[in-house]
Nucleic acid binder design. Sequence first.
DNA 1: CTGAAAGCGCTTACAG
DNA 2: CTGAAAGCGCTTACAG
Lengths: 345, 345
Amino acid sequence: MPPSGNRSTPVIKDVAQLAGVSVPTVSRYLNGTAKVSQEKREKIAQAIKLLDYKPSFVARALANKVMDSVTLLTSLSRYWATTEINSGAEHAARDRGFLFGVTSLDGISDDEIESTINRVLSANPAGVIVSESDEIAIQVLHQIPKDTPLVLIGGSRGDAPYQVMPSEREGGRVITEHLLGLGHRNVVHVHRPEGPNNNTRTLGWRDAMRDAGIQAVEAYQVGSDLEESVELGRKLAHDPNLTAIFAGNDETAISLIKGLRDEGVHVPEDVSVAGYNDQLFSRMWDPPLTSYSQNFVDLGAAAFEMLYAQIEAKRAGNPAPAPECRVIEGRLMVRDSTAAPRNAA
Amino acid sequence: MPPSGNRSTPVIKDVAQLAGVSVPTVSRYLNGTAKVSQEKREKIAQAIKLLDYKPSFVARALANKVMDSVTLLTSLSRYWATTEINSGAEHAARDRGFLFGVTSLDGISDDEIESTINRVLSANPAGVIVSESDEIAIQVLHQIPKDTPLVLIGGSRGDAPYQVMPSEREGGRVITEHLLGLGHRNVVHVHRPEGPNNNTRTLGWRDAMRDAGIQAVEAYQVGSDLEESVELGRKLAHDPNLTAIFAGNDETAISLIKGLRDEGVHVPEDVSVAGYNDQLFSRMWDPPLTSYSQNFVDLGAAAFEMLYAQIEAKRAGNPAPAPECRVIEGRLMVRDSTAAPRNAA
DNA sequence: CTGAAAGCGCTTACAG
DNA sequence: CTGAAAGCGCTTACAG
């Protein structure tokens, strides 16, 4: 018995008619914004079920000035961690009934960044998550109105009132200390370019080295072309003092190992090599890679939840939650690519 | 000289006032839906620039019954190919000024799938992309109104009027033929569960085997726990007739190699092993892995473009584009993990 | 507790 | 070419 318009998706008027109440009453029922008599509640519930009515996201968004959606801004859209973060955040959003949007900031000019962000904001998202990976992120932070719920993933402590970050620096320290604890007197670090923040693997490595009283620290930066790391491995193979390397990620680690082997250096017998990220392939490597495992899915989920708390508070007219910087712990995975140095015992 | 309301983001009324024209005229200017005099055009343009006005996505969506956004539905949100697909589609959408949403279907019950889809649709997306990975996708297809622009990624030819698919089957055939061409008399296949469609790597392998007149085909299915593949590798190591394996993906390939090695079997000297997907780590493997490279980023972008063509046609009141099934080609990457069998020449 | 009214920002017929 | 009017589907004061 389709009411009013006979076609397409039912709207609030349809359920109001079918239930024999006014439209605002249905709205109140839906949002719990005011008491509705038991009797009408039931009729409305029935009508909704009968019609399979779903409130329109966009009409609500227009009336409320805000949509039940969040958008994640990222500038490293194809990076492994980004995938995990997005997935974690998206699932959390979905489970709360929020639409989840992604907008990438890579591959566009600086001028376009502003208009891209404005476009995102013109969809009235309830909040935005900025996933830091480079300078762009910080620039972006300033372009988002202060009253828009926001959480920053990564960055330096204090870059934003609400942050979720991986234990990057801690991870760098832990890996380095593991190597040092094995008896290595020096740990060479090879890393990709890192974000402009104070929570990097490289800084953790420096922390550990400094605490161990080691002065001569050697770090090499490599790009995303793995051949570069292979080359570096070949070169490092001829350093007689080399006994341990902490690579900034697993791909770099296996590439270095490849280079070392090309020159007849054995891992871990001659040189220990640790990676970072504990990717799936790492445990299959020969030798299985010592690495640091970071749960980026949890990180993404935590970011959404922190955002959601702000959104809820704002809607309820409550004061904003206290600023927070949550660190998601990772953990060291010791495998066979690291061992005590030959001349240790 | 801020017009009307003095605060927050400007709306169309503000630019109309500032330009000294009516609101509909601004709208016409914006959408090019009717001629606007040169003089007014200029004034409007100026006002827009001055105010940094951006039309509201949601108001437009309400008036037009459709939002400048597309949503991608996926049930394999953390899979490698999914990342690439999403990234490709998102960039293409962004470049067209479309918002891009992702909704995952994994981890929810069958009942919830319908309501999740309804929720997505209640945001009036201009179109949706369904990324096939399992039976869920096909189920989803039927829940989307016929008049909603839609493109299916993957699936069997004919599952939907508009499809973009990887050359999976072709890839399976090419890899197998490569192995056969090297002189192998049999190619054992090890694969993960595959989608319920007729475009799978496994079918390509069967095609090639059949064409080569090989009857005794052996296929093994493994799960996502790589240890299972290692085990299988150990077991296969004792098969005296084994000379070549086509693994359904690179992770499986390296795990099999690990198992083979555990039993003293050398790759490629004793057994050739090929992977699939050509992941970054594959070329760094020891030995570097022969694999099939598929550009999933392009695939995602192509899916969006195909969707966009439908959206445009619909908006212009034109007939829908002709149904299309576009195949994105991949290519064979021959490396050292495959070689002629020992007793070949 | 519950209607009638007005409004969110934009677009589309309808009359000039 | 261009206004005034009505409407998209929902919500929020305003009066009962």
